[in-house]
Design a protein around this nucleic acid. Sequence first.
DNA 1: GGACAAGTTCGATGAACATCGAACTTATTC
DNA 2: GAATAAGTTCGATGTTCATCGAACTTGTCC
Lengths: 102, 102
Amino acid sequence: MTTETSGTAPVAPLPDVLDALSDPVRLEMVRRLAAEGGPVACSRLYDGIGKSTASHHFKTLREAGIIERSSRDGQTFQRLRVDEVEEALPGVLTAIVAAARR
Amino acid sequence: MTTETSGTAPVAPLPDVLDALSDPVRLEMVRRLAAEGGPVACSRLYDGIGKSTASHHFKTLREAGIIERSSRDGQTFQRLRVDEVEEALPGVLTAIVAAARR
DNA sequence: GGACAAGTTCGATGAACATCGAACTTATTC
DNA sequence: GAATAAGTTCGATGTTCATCGAACTTGTCC
């Protein structure tokens, strides 16, 4: 078995979700994840910041229940938890991602 | 003429709007404004914080282009700029307010 | 095993911000 | 005009947080 998914956190309350998405770096990460539609390698989700900073932002998004981490063949992937967030906060993620596209 | 409306600011970029809405105090203000559907007196939009703090939050929301201030008969009112925000960021405010209702 | 690559964790640092109280402004009321 | 009420502005304070570099972990490749 080469795929491992970490334990998932519940989707956080609305203010925490909005706070997680209000940072431009994290919003861009989420935008790219939504555009891809599936798990994406970490390094393809950011530019212009250090690895440690990116890792911090992943953690913030994960603790808000917005993304999920998985490992495969030694690489780390992030996946947008579209269904879970939509169920907890209907329309919110969809509208924000759509607005972020332009 | 007893009604005076201040100059309006354009709706801010998405990250700034989300940041403005990510604070629980401000989110509650916006939720109450949306529930009323029209201008509401300042003092009816918050509880448990001082006047100066509330004024600070109004300023933040105003600078994000989310609300608008008006005066009438010596009282100050705040109004949610639903149409303007919807045009700039379709669906965002609507979904957030709906999610905040529960 | 040694070298390398990819992420995470840890401290430190500097900036942003939520909150308060006090002073000021403006309008109403007696 | 004095007093009151409603908001705003101004400093000050303490906390949170985005960022970095360095050290550590894990897995791959020669």
